[in-house]
């Protein structure tokens, strides 16, 4: 009888996650805003750091040039981000306590509940990262133009972009691991008795 479980298709999973996010859009927007701010800070700092580097000719990739102070600020702001997302995700679990209990009652496995939350985190991280990088790109553009007279080489932007996405996905995932685990371990009996 073990074989009887089919894997939930990605499409169904995404559908449930997106419907959920739409229903609770105000808090989700706050969480995205949170990721966005963190990523915008990190990626604009990285972009600006290139403009301090001594001019190299042509379209050559420049290494990152962050000083200790900038690294500190980055770490602290990302930590604040993680804590806030963590908090928001915990609230989300509590809000959906009964819903999760019902799903488990209907035969959802623990891993499915885990997947729902991880997926949500990935979507939040992706949107936050995209916004963060775009805004950082736009706002740093005039400064970079003033400093070095030209935009950074494309490779540098691609490099910063991949780092920004990595940071965005990573912080939202780190913040979601515990809430998601907590949600997956909800006991349906307790959850069904639970009144908000």
């Amino acid at each position: 009888m073990e074989s009887a479980f089919a894997k939930l298709s990605l499409k169904d999973l995404l559908h449930i996650v997106l419907e959920n996010m739409r229903k609770r859009r105000s808090r989700i927007l706050l969480t995205i805003g949170n990721v966005f701010l963190g990523v915008a800070l990190v990626s604009s700092m990285m972009m600006l750091s290139y403009s301090y580097t001594p001019k190299t000719t042509g379209n050559v990739f420049k290494p990152l040039n962050l000083n200790d102070y900038q690294i500190w600020v980055t770490i602290i702001s990302l930590t604040v981000c993680v804590i806030t997302i963590f908090n928001s995700m915990l609230i989300s679990v509590t809000e959906r306590y009964k819903e999760i209990g019902t799903m488990k009652c209907l035969g959802a496995k623990d891993s499915l509940i885990l997947q729902l939350f991880i997926f949500e985190a990935l979507v939040i991280g992706f949107i936050g990262g995209l916004l963060g990088f775009s805004i950082a790109f736009i706002t740093t553009m005039p400064m970079i133009l003033l400093q070095i007279g030209t935009l950074l080489p494309l490779q540098n932007y691609l490099y910063v972009m991949s780092l920004s996405f990595a940071v965005a996905l990573l912080i939202s995932l780190i913040a979601t691991i515990y809430p998601a685990y907590h949600a997956s371990k909800i006991n349906p009996v307790d959850a069904l008795r639970f009144e908000v």
Binding site: I16, R22, K104, C105, L106, G107, L192
Partner: peptide, 30 residues
């Protein structure tokens, strides 16, 4: 075990609750 219980609940048992317990974000058919 927990995994088999989930299977059993899914296939062998249908639940109806006092408080309905529908998933609020999904439509009736979903």
């Amino acid at each position: 075990d927990a995994y088999e219980l989930a299977w059993l609940r899914c296939r062998k048992i249908g639940y109806i609750f006092q408080t309905f317990n529908l998933i609020p974000v999904l439509t009736a058919i979903e």
